[in-house]
Lab assay of single mutants.
Amino acid sequence: NQASVVANQLIPINTALTLVMMRSEVVTPVGIPADDIPRLVSMQVNRAVPLGTTLMPDMVKGYP
């Protein structure tokens, strides 16, 4: 099973992602692959992302 990117904390709308905000976890449904975490750094979320939420491609501005 492939690990996905999961919010490690509440991420407010328009926040630029940092490594501490994300963790990898095997979840269903599958979200953004954990391998993409380095690419996500400094990209902004377009909505508030609660703790434990799987990051989906449509939540991150400019992804992929």
Rank of each mutant, 00 (worst) to 15 (best):
N1M: 14
N1G: 13
N1T: 14
N1L: 14
N1I: 15
Q2K: 13
A3T: 11
A3K: 12
A3N: 12
S4R: 01
S4T: 04
S4F: 03
V5Q: 00
V5F: 01
V6S: 03
A7F: 02
A7K: 01
N8E: 08
N8A: 15
Q9S: 09
Q9L: 08
L10I: 09
I11Y: 00
P12Y: 06
P12H: 09
P12G: 07
I13K: 12
N14D: 11
N14F: 07
T15Y: 08
A16Q: 09
L17G: 00
L17R: 00
T18W: 03
T18M: 14
T18Q: 11
T18S: 14
L19Q: 09
M21L: 06
M21S: 06
M22P: 00
M22W: 02
M22R: 00
R23A: 09
E25G: 12
V26C: 04
V26W: 12
V26D: 06
V27W: 03
V27M: 07
V27E: 02
V27R: 15
P29L: 04
P29T: 05
P29K: 04
V30Y: 15
V30S: 09
V30M: 10
G31R: 02
G31D: 00
G31L: 01
G31E: 01
I32K: 00
P33H: 10
P33S: 11
P33F: 08
P33N: 08
A34G: 14
A34F: 08
D35L: 13
D36F: 15
D36V: 09
I37F: 03
P38T: 10
P38L: 13
R39A: 12
L40A: 00
V41A: 05
S42F: 07
M43E: 05
M43L: 13
M43N: 05
M43Y: 13
Q44R: 14
Q44T: 11
Q44F: 12
V45R: 00
N46V: 12
N46W: 07
R47S: 09
R47F: 08
A48V: 12
A48H: 13
V49L: 09
P50W: 07
G52T: 03
G52K: 04
G52H: 08
G52M: 05
T53S: 14
T54R: 04
L55E: 00
M56P: 00
M56F: 13
P57H: 11
P57D: 06
P57R: 09
P57F: 06
D58H: 12
D58T: 09
M59I: 05
V60G: 01
V60L: 07
K61V: 15
K61P: 10
G62E: 11
G62W: 12
Y63C: 03
P64K: 04
P64S: 13
